[in-house]
Amino acid sequence: MTDQGKFARFLITLSAVIVAGCALTVTIKVMNTDTEALYPPRLLDQETVERQAAEVARGPKNVSRDGVECPAAMEAEEGNKFDCRVRVGYNDKTVTVEVIDDQGRLSMNAS
């Protein structure tokens, strides 16, 4: 009977070690999880950005998106910069866009 008791205690101890190892593995996996997959980045509205770029390059009377090329999927993250190309007549103007804050406020300059 004593051998059965020792064997039972051994199995209980072994089970506890296996459970602890599994818990540690799960904890490490959770800590290394990419949070970006859980919370995708906020993107700027491309149509609005293109209209604003057109207004900066062409003036307030021609805010059509025709002839405006901005990158797709622009993140609303403070400090992000990108260029939009705006056709003005027969020439292209470059509008440099900078995201001022994570709420999507922008600063634009035409060159």
Rank of each mutant, 00 (worst) to 15 (best):
M1K: 02
T2A: 05
D3L: 05
A8E: 14
R9V: 08
F10A: 04
I12N: 09
I18C: 02
V19Y: 14
G21F: 07
G21N: 10
A23C: 06
A23D: 10
I28Q: 10
K29Y: 07
V30D: 03
V30A: 11
M31S: 06
D34I: 09
E36V: 15
A37K: 13
A37Q: 13
P41W: 04
R42E: 07
D45T: 09
Q46P: 01
E47S: 05
E47T: 08
E47R: 09
V49F: 12
A53Q: 03
A53C: 10
A54T: 09
A54L: 12
E55L: 11
E55W: 12
A57F: 05
P60I: 13
P60R: 11
N62A: 15
S64G: 10
R65T: 11
A76V: 04
E77H: 05
E77F: 06
K81D: 03
C84V: 13
R87C: 01
G89C: 06
Y90F: 12
D92L: 15
K93M: 13
T94N: 05
T94L: 15
T94H: 02
V95G: 02
V95E: 07
E98Y: 01
V99G: 11
D102M: 09
G104W: 03
S107K: 14
M108A: 07
M108K: 01
